[in-house]
Design a protein around this nucleic acid. Structure first.
Length: 520
RNA sequence: GGCGGUGUAGCUCAGUUGGUUAGAGCAGCGGUUUCAUAAGCCGCGUGUCGGCGGUUCGAGUCCGCCCACCGCCA
């Protein structure tokens, strides 16, 4: 019986091209979906583009186009990028999509009818230059920071989502479910926001059309459009098939959100309260990751100071980049990206350790056993150790993925590659090269290489969600083309003996060629 | 200003409920091997565990104060 799994990335704000931050979140989501499918789960993912809001209008005006054309272009760019990188989500939601707009309006009407929304007159300091209300932070000595002019007092009517009366149960929910927001540091931050809720009031969810026309029209007041989060967060429901996809209920019950730490508050506070207002259960978990810091000086001039995933693919291949992202960031903390670090990491782990292991093991099979996997005829301590370590590794990887620590999962897989390198060294099967078939030395060499191939099969299977292309590369070289497709985690990874003696292997080209550091 | 986090080898980080000589990976140095992608394997780390003080038979690991950086809130 397959279990449901549902993961979302944020819908990316459509004012910028895909960069390293978007790529990281999408890679993690992709890895989780592959991991769950490899387990036989029914996995679904959602990503998309957030296309409404003031900033979008500004960005479009700056380029002299209308918002619809502008966001269309950026959204296409995102979709094209994810397609190129094999990171296509099950559903890609654009907030301008009519189906989504319909959902937002239906929900707004329902929440309005249930008394969760109130019209209020808002008075504040408005800067004509900025065309918006200012906060204290926007002002210096009573003047607008950007325009150096005095703001005027203005009144405006906004619709407010009555959120502040709900903080009590939300805090209880967070306290009763320690794993609901992870890592723990962010859970504490949210509890902090709720503890001293003075700064958190009700949420303004509308703008008068006179000021902002680009948005979803409120169904109960045609003169206003929906503003920011209310519209954006609902995209997760749209992507899950709301309201009438038969799979929506089970998907929603399994929902896990991946976000960067900059959008913690909307996801940890606004969203659960919105869900309650519309009569839906809270999502299952919220996973918060940190920022990628980029050291401009060390980024090649040809790339500029933005890390474009397509440019990285051009230069290093996408899987090495993907490996670096997953291996280098401890989920939840900030990390830094540098090309030198990428090259060092990939060469040490993938080329020298794993890639070379594949190369030497299959070369030994080709030269010593005519390219055919020999049978294992004995089992000494060293052989049993290699089998046992496969099981340990599966368990370590399983635990790491469960805890959303991809870096630890990869570390465990590469540790096992080191074990196999040591095992081959100890046995030195190349020394039996000229021994008679059937001799003790030849039999032991055969056993060693048989187990080495088994170990590589386990590695390929575990690696598949992280580096799908490389995993297929290992499987193909082992002569097991359908390995990834027919195997299930974790059982097939723990069951030794699925590379039959007699399988024809092919060393082929280097799995991970060594990379060169960019010239300064 | 309030709340919280972080500060451990050149770099990135592990360090369970306090307990023997503080660990790993990478980089570096030395050795070895030659099946392999100038890869593998073996060996080499006395670092005031940010500082000061305290609790304790014993603290990186608990408490207080201070410093630095970061985050959230104001």
């Amino acid at each position: 019986m397959s279990r449901a799994f549902f993961v979302t990335t944020p819908i990316y704000y459509a004012n910028a091209e895909p960069h390293i931050g978007h790529t990281y979140t999408s890679v993690v989501a992709d890895m989780l979906v592959r991991w769950h499918r490899q387990r036989g789960d029914d996995a679904w993912s959602v990503s998309g583009t957030d296309e409404h809001g003031e900033k979008m209008v500004e960005a479009a005006e700056k380029r002299g186009v209308d918002p619809a054309a502008f966001t269309e272009k950026i959204s296409q760019l995102h979709q094209h990028t994810w397609a190129e990188l094999d990171l296509v989500p099950s559903a890609f939601v654009r907030t301008t999509d009519p189906r989504h707009v319909r959902n937002v309006q239906e929900i707004l009407q329902r929440v309005w009818d249930a008394g969760w929304i109130e019209l209020r007159e808002y008075e504040g300091l408005y800067c004509v230059g900025c065309e918006r209300f200012l906060t204290e932070r926007d002002m210096v000595d009573g003047l607008c920071r950007d325009h150096e002019r005095a703001p005027e007092t203005r009144r405006e009517t906004n619709y407010f989502f009555l959120m502040s009366r709900e903080f009590g149960w939300l805090r209880d929910h967070i306290q009763a479910n320690p794993e609901w927001i992870a890592p723990e540091r962010y859970r504490n931050e949210v509890l902090g926001m709720l503890r001293d809720a003075s700064g958190l009031g009700d949420l303004s969810i509308s703008r008068p059309k006179s000021r902002l026309a680009w948005g979803v029209e409120l169904p109960f007041d045609r003169d206003h459009v929906c503003y920011v989060w209310f519209d954006a967060l609902i995209s997760y429901l749209t992507g899950a098939g709301y309201p009438d996809d038969p799979k929506f209920p089970e998907r929603w019950s399994a929902a896990e959100h991946l976000i960067g730490k900059d959008i913690l508050k909307p996801h940890a506070i606004f969203w659960p309260i919105m869900l309650k207002a519309m009569g839906l259960a809270p999502y299952r978990r919220l996973h918060v990751h940190g920022y990628w810091n980029v050291d401009d000086r060390k980024v090649s001039k040809s790339l500029g100071n933005m890390i474009s995933p397509l440019a990285m693919r051009e230069r290093y291949g996408f899987e090495p980049f993907r490996y670096f992202l997953l291996r280098e960031m401890s989920f939840g903390l900030d990390s830094s990206f540098g090309e030198d670090a990428l090259v060092e990491r990939v060469n040490a782990d993938l080329a020298n350790n794993l890639g070379n292991l594949v190369s030497r093991a299959l070369n030994l099979v080709e030269k010593g056993f005519d390219g055919v996997v020999p049978p294992a005829t004995t089992a000494f301590d060293a052989d049993r150790h290699v089998m046992q370590r496969a099981i340990d590794t599966v368990q370590r990887v399983d635990a790491a993925v469960g805890a959303l620590q991809p870096s630890q999962a990869l570390a465990a897989i590469l540790d096992y590659a080191s074990d196999l390198n040591r095992y081959i060294d100890e046995r030195a099967p190349w020394k039996a090269g000229k021994s008679e078939p059937g001799s003790e030395a030849k039999e032991l060499a055969g056993t060693t290489l048989h187990n080495a191939c088994e170990g590589l099969r386990v590695i390929a299977l575990l690696l598949a969600p992280f580096l799908p292309e490389a995993a297929r590369g290992i499987a193909t070289r082992l002569g097991l083309d359908d390995l990834i497709g027919r195997s299930r985690l974790p059982n097939d990874a723990m069951a030794w003996g699925q590379v039959p003696a007699g399988t024809r292997v092919a060393k082929g080209a280097a799995l991970f060629p060594r990379l060169e550091k960019p010239a300064e």
